[in-house]
């Protein structure tokens, strides 16, 4: 494993994309920053611009309006960039499946880009952190 890759696994800056979610997952993502969970211990930071991001945390069921944006945001992110599907909605659209307002699930929208799925409604902060750690491990295996 090269130095670059090692540095990447030690400093994953995350950008949070909410695409038609009920905001529970979004709140639990923010909760990861807070004193009890504190993902800065692993070097992770929540950044404000997608240009600074190493991992996109995508929540929500991909509604028609925001799905386009998610695709564009992924294109705008500097590579290598991990994508994590946070919450049951992002994994398989959950309870909203079949609604007229939704497009395809995240992994069909960004084929091959999704590295980790974190199910749960909402997933606990522990689960989100575990998902991030496992996604980083896939980088190490490469």
């Amino acid at each position: 494993m090269g130095l670059k890759l090692k540095a990447l696994t030690k400093s994953p800056w995350v950008f949070h994309v909410s695409a038609g979610s009920c905001n529970n997952c979004d709140i639990e993502i923010l909760d990861c920053l807070c004193p009890r969970f504190d993902i800065e211990r692993f070097g992770a930071l929540l950044v404000g611009s997608v240009r600074h991001a190493d991992a996109l945390l995508v929540t929500g069921a991909m509604n028609r309006k925001s799905a386009m944006r998610v695709k564009k945001l992924y294109d705008q992110a500097p590579k290598p960039c991990l994508v994590l599907a946070i919450g049951t909605c992002a994994c398989d659209q959950g309870i909203f499946r079949g609604s007229y307002a939704l497009t395809t699930p995240l992994d069909e929208l960004l084929p091959g880009a999704v590295t980790a799925y974190v199910p749960g409604c909402p997933p606990k902060p522990e689960a989100i952190i575990s998902g991030l750690v496992k996604a980083l491990q896939t980088l190490q295996d490469k």
């Binding site: 069921a61 509604n63 309870i95 909203f96 609604s99 307002a101």
Partner: peptide, 21 residues
């Protein structure tokens, strides 16, 4: 509209006991 999921329509396809979820 970035978050629209069509919930009212979904509710019409669920039973009274399922709608709270």
């Amino acid at each position: 509209g970035w978050n629209h999921r069509g919930i009212e329509k979904i509710c019409e396809t669920k039973t009274f006991d399922q709608v709270p979820f």
